[in-house]
Computed example of a mutant assay.
Amino acid sequence: MAPVRRKKSTINLLVPFLIIALVFGFLIWNKYRASRMPNPRPHVQHPSGSRRVVLFFVADGTRLAREARELESCADTASCVRETLNELFNGPLGELDKALPEGALLNNVRVEGDTALVDLSRTFVDAMPSGSSAEMMAVYSIVNTVCVNFPAITKVRLTVAGEGNLILKHLDLSAPLTADYGLEGPPSDAAKPSHTDTTGGTP
């Protein structure tokens, strides 16, 4: 009967050992499987909300007029000005006419203190229609759009392909310009800007 007891003792010792081995094996397998799984991408929250801006186009071929538009929120003043002017360069959505020469592009925007430096493509000059009225409408559609939406900016300096001290046939662009709202008819209440951020306002 001694061999039977020894066999039972051996089995009693093996059972806990096998259980421990299975537990460790399971833990090691789980770690291996977890290491093979791709890490989930962190959740990035995108800025929400929108801002309402006013763009200046041409009405009746003789005066500037306002068109309101909803744009996405933006990170800083320079990028807000750039996105707003890009909408201006894209042209009107309603019955107004584009004030800018056909093919003119926005190159760059910088903000230094109370002045926005707006660099335009060479086409802005080369494709400009003749006449002082066309020049006034084109230049002040930009200046007024910037100043009406960003009250902290009181002056706009226009350059073309990086060239300053520019003089058009009828307008001197060598110095920063201030807004001229006398070039428009009285705006309707619907065209007044109303912002959900702090980058713009009403003149």
Results as ranks from 00 to 15, higher is better:
162 G>A: 06
30 N>P: 00
60 D>V: 08
181 Y>Q: 06
194 S>N: 11
109 V>A: 07
151 P>A: 06
166 L>S: 04
15 V>K: 10
203 P>L: 01
111 V>N: 04
24 F>H: 05
113 G>Y: 02
37 M>C: 02
193 P>L: 02
116 A>E: 07
184 E>C: 01
193 P>E: 08
192 K>R: 13
19 I>P: 00
65 A>R: 09
181 Y>F: 15
20 I>T: 12
80 C>Q: 00
45 Q>G: 02
6 R>D: 09
187 P>L: 07
30 N>L: 14
127 A>E: 15
142 I>V: 12
165 N>Y: 04
60 D>H: 13
182 G>L: 05
198 T>I: 15
187 P>I: 07
65 A>T: 03
143 V>N: 04
158 L>F: 01
73 S>N: 11
181 Y>R: 06
160 V>H: 01
172 D>L: 03
200 G>M: 08
27 L>F: 12
38 P>Y: 09
106 L>T: 01
167 I>S: 10
87 E>D: 14
22 L>T: 09
41 R>A: 14
74 C>F: 12
66 R>Y: 00
89 F>Y: 09
94 G>R: 11
181 Y>P: 00
182 G>N: 10
129 P>I: 09
29 W>F: 14
173 L>G: 00
158 L>Y: 00
141 S>A: 05
107 N>L: 12
40 P>K: 11
61 G>Q: 05
104 A>W: 04
189 D>A: 15
149 N>E: 03
168 L>V: 03
1 M>A: 12
127 A>Q: 15
146 V>C: 07
35 S>R: 08
47 P>Y: 04
168 L>W: 01
54 V>E: 14
31 K>W: 09
177 L>N: 02
77 T>K: 10
45 Q>A: 10
164 G>E: 13
161 A>K: 07
119 D>H: 08
65 A>M: 06
187 P>G: 09
94 G>H: 10
74 C>R: 15
30 N>E: 14
24 F>W: 12
96 L>Q: 03
51 R>N: 13
187 P>V: 07
62 T>V: 11
3 P>K: 05
117 L>S: 06
76 D>T: 10
60 D>R: 14
61 G>F: 06
92 P>R: 07
167 I>R: 13
26 F>G: 09
2 A>L: 13
68 A>P: 11
111 V>K: 02
2 A>D: 13
157 R>Q: 15
141 S>M: 02
5 R>H: 07
48 S>C: 03
143 V>L: 03
65 A>D: 13
100 L>H: 05
28 I>C: 06
175 A>H: 10
